[in-house]
């Protein structure tokens, strides 16, 4: 049990360190990108580097999110059943949403 907690603590930090450059990249391109027209945004995601960085960003950011939300539930939800349900919802969100998004990115890139 304690080993698991240590692992989660470490993984939270590792994903955080990876996210520092990725988030800087993301913020620096996203705000300009979101204001562009449809075709320009599609072209952006067809680029190899942007495609790969976006996929990595999504995977790491959702892992980090899941770990962080789990930590908040651990602190503020006493009832283990509610905690399990909350964790289940976050796990589902952190799996399904990035998965659909990455599949969308793959279709955008290779269409």
């Amino acid at each position: 049990m304690s080993n698991m907690v240590v692992k989660k603590w470490l993984l939270q930090r590792i994903t955080a360190v990876i996210l520092v450059p990725l988030l800087i990249w993301f913020l620096s391109v996203f705000i300009g990108l979101v204001q562009k027209d449809f075709q320009s945004i599609i072209l952006f995601f067809k680029d190899n580097v942007n495609f790969v960085l976006s996929v990595i960003f999504l995977i790491i950011v959702f892992s980090h999110m899941k770990l962080g939300m789990g930590e908040i539930f651990e602190d503020y939800i006493q009832d283990n059943r509610y905690k399990s349900v909350a964790n289940l919802i976050i796990t589902a969100l952190a799996t399904i949403l990035p998965l659909i998004t990455i599949v969308s990115l793959v279709f955008i890139k290779f269409n």
């Binding site: 996203f30 979101v34 599609i42 995601f45 976006s54 999504l58 962080g68 949403l97 659909i100 969308s104």
Partner: peptide
């Protein structure tokens, strides 16, 4: 912690943005 929750909403919106892009110009 508050921003972590807001960021969860933010990244979800970004996902929907990308999915809308895939669904095409009419949806976007």
């Amino acid at each position: 912690r508050l921003t972590s929750v807001i960021n969860t909403a933010g990244i979800s919106v970004i996902c929907f943005w990308i999915i809308a892009l895939y669904l095409g110009e009419d949806c976007y």
